[in-house]
Amino acid sequence: TFVALYDYESRTETDLSFKKGERLQIVNNTEGDWWLAHSLTTGQTGYIPSNYVAP
């Protein structure tokens, strides 16, 4: 799992909003700078900017 370093507000319907400190499970990280992730807090799935999270 990864932890959010910053808050992120989604800009498209495929993005995932999250708050700093939220735990995220990475589903697919082969898309370059945008990873498909599942929030362990909200249960939602969407794309996140990879530079906003850390292991």
Rank of each mutant, 00 (worst) to 15 (best):
T1D: 10
F2S: 03
F2P: 00
F2W: 15
V3D: 05
V3C: 05
V3A: 04
V3Q: 05
V3Y: 10
A4Y: 01
L5K: 06
L5P: 02
L5F: 03
Y6P: 00
Y6V: 07
D7S: 07
D7M: 03
D7F: 03
Y8V: 01
Y8N: 02
Y8L: 03
Y8I: 01
E9N: 10
E9A: 10
S10Y: 03
R11M: 13
R11F: 10
T12R: 14
T12C: 14
T12H: 14
T12M: 11
T12K: 14
E13N: 13
E13R: 04
E13P: 14
T14E: 11
T14H: 14
T14Q: 13
T14Y: 15
T14M: 12
D15Q: 15
D15M: 10
D15H: 15
L16E: 00
L16F: 13
L16G: 03
L16C: 04
L16Y: 05
F18V: 08
K19V: 10
K19L: 09
K20V: 09
K20R: 11
K20Y: 06
G21A: 03
R23L: 15
R23G: 07
R23C: 12
L24S: 00
L24Y: 02
L24W: 03
Q25C: 14
Q25H: 11
Q25F: 14
Q25L: 15
I26A: 07
I26Y: 03
V27R: 07
V27Q: 08
V27S: 07
V27A: 07
V27W: 14
N28Y: 09
N28P: 05
N28I: 10
N29T: 14
N29Q: 14
E31A: 14
E31C: 13
E31P: 12
G32R: 13
G32A: 14
D33K: 13
W34T: 08
W35Q: 04
W35L: 08
W35K: 04
L36F: 12
L36T: 04
A37L: 02
A37C: 02
H38N: 07
S39H: 10
L40V: 07
L40N: 06
T41R: 11
T41S: 13
T41Y: 10
T41Q: 11
T42A: 03
T42E: 01
T42M: 03
G43R: 05
G43D: 06
G43V: 02
Q44F: 11
T45L: 09
G46A: 03
G46Q: 00
Y47M: 12
Y47C: 07
I48W: 00
P49L: 08
P49S: 04
P49V: 02
S50C: 08
S50F: 08
S50Q: 06
S50P: 08
N51F: 12
N51C: 09
N51S: 14
Y52E: 01
Y52R: 07
A54Q: 12
A54F: 09
P55E: 10
P55H: 10
P55V: 10
P55W: 12
